[in-house]
């Protein structure tokens, strides 16, 4: 069902190659056959509304979520490359955790190794360099939990970057940032993929900040995806076909707005617990699928 623009498929030497990803969670079809190839140094945006399956796709690409069907080939971790770097959407950090930015970044390098770390000068230098690369050197000694959201984002980015990954998967890194910090991060990412040849796959519900740097867009809706250059995808006719209902794309003053013509269906009001609160319900399949009740 994927309407991918042909020229982008089968990129030679792709760092990531996903085929026909299908994911069903709690009886609900979240992804319905998504293909994706990413070349080194490429900047790919996964765009879609809340609930479109962006995080699910990203977690499938990372390998922490096993798709119901489909295959993913991703870079392996070996002596030369750090494999896949990942920045989750929400990292709940304890304000009082006794960890400095520097400690968090060092864990990105050797967090999986046994034994007590005895960091040599070379390691410390590498940590400094990575912190510098994300403009975080000035708060390297601060507690990670006491930093602002933008600062934390940069430190966690350094954590993901220090192992020299071939691919970075970033889940909504701009969601909780003010426009200036978000612009900073985007500029930074754009620089990194040029200097380090790292491929970047980033999710966002607002594509505007990413438009200047994205090589390719994967637009998700209803479990399906349209892939192509931003100009080819973000068009009224393409998105209308994807959503299966009238969608208008408006461009004004260099910004893009995607509007559903029949928007405004009010949320149903009911006193139900969000799934995470009802976490006691374990696998939660029972209630999640039937929409509440027995």
């Amino acid at each position: 069902m994927t309407h991918s623009t042909q020229e982008w498929n089968d990129v030679p030497g792709a760092v990531l190659s996903a085929r026909d990803i299908r994911v069903t969670l709690s009886g609900k079809l979240i992804l319905d056959g998504v293909d994706l190839d990413v070349a080194p140094g490429e900047f790919v945006g996964l765009i879609g509304a809340n609930g479109a399956g962006k995080t699910t796709l990203l977690r499938s690409l990372l390998g922490v979520l096993k798709p119901t069907s489909g295959t993913v080939e991703r870079p392996r971790r070996d002596a030369r490359t750090g494999g896949v770097g990942y920045l989750p959407q929400k990292v709940a950090l304890d304000v009082d955790a006794p960890l400095r930015a520097r400690d968090v970044v060092a864990l990105g390098l050797d967090g999986g190794r046994p034994g007590i770390p005895l960091h040599r000068r070379a390691t410390r230098k590498r940590v400094d360099e990575t912190l510098d690369a994300v403009n975080a050197l000035s708060f390297a000694e601060q507690r990670i939990g006491e930093m602002s959201g933008g600062q934390q984002q940069r430190v966690l980015l350094a954590h993901a970057l220090i192992s020299d990954p071939a691919l970075l998967l970033l889940d909504e890194p701009l969601a909780n940032l003010d426009p200036a910090s978000a612009y900073d991060i985007v500029t930074l990412l754009d620089r990194l993929r040029r200097t380090h040849r790292v491929a970047i796959v980033i999710t966002a519900h607002d594509m505007n900040l990413l438009l200047p740097v994205m090589d390719r867009i994967v637009y998700l809706a209803g479990g399906r995806a349209v892939t192509g250059s931003p100009e080819a995808v973000v068009r009224s006719d393409v998105l209308t076909r994807l959503y299966g209902r009238p969608i208008r794309v408006i461009r004004a003053e260099g910004r893009v707005m995607v509007i559903a013509d029949d928007a405004g269906i009010p949320d149903e009001v009911h006193h139900e617990l969000p799934a995470e609160v009802a976490g006691a319900s374990g696998s939660s399949g029972l209630s999640g699928s039937s929409g509440g009740g027995l």
Partner: peptide, 12 residues
């Protein structure tokens, strides 16, 4: 949780 939110959206 994500899926529970509404799909109709205005972006930008």
């Amino acid at each position: 949780k994500d899926a529970g939110r509404h799909v109709a959206e205005v972006m930008g």
